[in-house]
Design a protein around this nucleic acid. Structure first.
Lengths: 343, 343
DNA sequence: TTGTATGCGTTATCAC
DNA sequence: GTGATAACGCATACAA
């Protein structure tokens, strides 16, 4: 493997100094057109492309951002990551993606890896409510923005989320409108603001409609497919089963659909289902899942744009940037009027 | 933003030279235990973590690999990326993911971005058959391995794939065993070896079974959801429609399922469907897609392991590493015996 | 408008 | 065992 061609080689061929090569590379204004052309020619001739690592070291800027997720094979994160990759490309940033486990240790290791690689900014797509450290990095001058989830102590944090409480409320509102009175709810771990807020929205909406909050039809365990299927099946086996299910995520809704099919009941005739997230597969006509959209794609774009601004003007780091999207109900074919309604 | 703490700061605190700090950082054998401890303490005390950019420049190694895909929101790539991320983490490599368009220009831009960032190796997950350039990089000492697809002139290239022809054959074999005689095939752009080889396998299997190859029930257009739905619908509307569909990818199979549902027919009673890839959603019991597995996950692991070897021993770059997996049919619930069979 | 010299934060090659 | 010191490949302040 021969040595890479460097800016010095270009300089030699063009008959100028290396600093001049650097100047044309960086589009400095005061370079004679003639010299510029000579350099450009030389670059073509010997096939030079700058070493971004050396450049990063000199400029103290890597043009790389970090994205921390839990699992990019989860459609929600995969679809988000795709948007972020495309958007980052526009601004000439590359992105290092780290799938970190949800425990504290893995998360911190991910952050310190990214700090070591001197990324210019970090997007965290799966932060726990109790994470404190994230604020420290901000103070040290590293822009960190959290996407979709926020921490408890978020007054001074940058984050983008959807109004999760409202999202749950409009889902319940719609089901009540369809005359459902027994609405099961599938939640996930309360250590995440998304699940926490959605459960809260569900509770409040249930009570606002004069229905009673029944803990036995609310699942609060791990986000595990099989467990959710089991829970749903156990409810569906009873004669007086919930006529509707509201799930905290579309993936969970898929598990419920599975359980309903296993129980021999029909969607939406016997059971209505609403999900949350509006991942791509939910829109597949064969699935046709009614769901609450958080405008995932727009959120992802805004997250990256906001991060870019924070990176390019570090004076803004001190004033928390917080954006809250308004959710929207997307009605497809897993919801219908409650046929067993007494009215 | 205060200056980062450097190895010099550590040296000052520990009362040693910066080179000694470097030595303990790199676990050099000949450092007195006492000195090592002093340095380690100092590191803890002032919270030092090495600048990987500077380190990369000095070592001429970034511990970063590049992954080029077309669209990480596509479950096939998302699931692959996840495996690669996790596997890379084990070996202490980070990964920059680039979603590149399928045209030559975007691909080359992606590669040169990665070369600029001086990645130690590249995995290409979506190479076109006609790509030539990829071999050049290998010659220049940069390990590149292609995953899932291969180039025409692949004698000297590194790649990992499944036996696509065989995969198509076992799918057709199974459908014939179920007494299907009119089997439609949905293919994608022939510029990719996957689609090319799967079509070939389909043709050969059809003929091997004494059936006639009917071009009118073979789709060869773009991999576009709506177009595939339209094509499938047009076939299904006829009285004598194909009783089975074999799709080049699970995503395509999803489109067919959609079309079948729209046509009012039933799966698998009226129409059997087989996909290819075995993406996660195919295994969802509610979908239950019969499909050809290429052992995607094992393939991804092998791809990364192979790349690691190439990176750590560049003498192996010259001898092409080529691995071909044997596909397996996964029977789920979208296939059944042809009820309209004459026998 | 251009060249010289220095620094970015490490690793690696010498000496001692 | 350890400390100077020269790379690594650029950007940039300062001179000219």
């Amino acid at each position: 493997m021969t040595r890479r061609v460097s800016a010095y080689d270009v300089a030699k061929v063009a008959g100028v100094s290396q600093s001049t090569v650097s100047r044309v590379l960086n589009n400095y204004p005061y370079v004679k057109q003639e010299t510029r052309d000579k350099v450009l020619e030389a670059i073509q001739e010997i096939g030079f492309s700058p070493d971004e690592i050396a450049r990063s070291l000199a400029k103290n800027k890597t043009n790389t951002i970090g994205l921390i997720t839990t699992d990019i094979s989860n459609p929600f994160y995969g679809e988000t990551a795709h948007i972020i990759l495309r958007e980052a490309q526009k601004y000439d940033y590359d992105v290092i993606i780290i799938d970190a486990e949800t425990d504290r240790h893995s998360f911190e290791r991910a952050v310190s890896t990214l700090v070591g690689k001197r990324v210019d900014g970090i997007i965290v797509a799966s932060i726990r409510k109790d994470n404190q450290k994230i604020l420290d990095y901000g103070k040290q001058g590293l822009p960190i923005i959290s996407y979709n989830r926020k921490i408890d102590d978020h007054e001074r944090a940058h984050f983008i989320e959807v109004d999760n409480k409202l999202g749950a409320q409009i889902a319940v509102d719609y089901l009540v409108e369809l005359k459902h009175e027994s609405i099961a709810f599938i939640s996930g771990p309360m250590i995440y603001s998304t699940f926490h807020d959605r459960l809260q929205g569900y509770q409040q909406a249930i009570q606002a409609h004069g229905l009673t909050y029944d803990e036995s039809i609310v699942y609060q365990g791990e986000n595990e497919y099989d467990q959710i299927v089991q829970f749903s099946l156990s409810l569906l086996k009873k004669d007086t089963h919930p006529t509707a299910f509201f799930a905290s995520t579309d993936n969970m809704a898929l598990a419920i659909m599975d359980a309903v099919a296993q129980s021999g009941r029909k969607i939406p005739e016997d059971v209505s289902i609403i999900g949350f997230d509006d991942i791509n597969i939910a829109g597949n006509p064969y699935i046709g899942l009614t769901t609450v959209s958080q405008h995932k794609n727009e959120m992802a774009v805004q997250t990256l744009d906001t991060l870019i601004h924070l990176m390019e003007d570090s004076s803004k780091l001190g004033t928390p940037k917080q954006i809250i999207f308004t959710p929207a109900l997307i009605v497809r074919k897993t919801t219908a009027v409650n046929s067993s309604s007494s009215t």
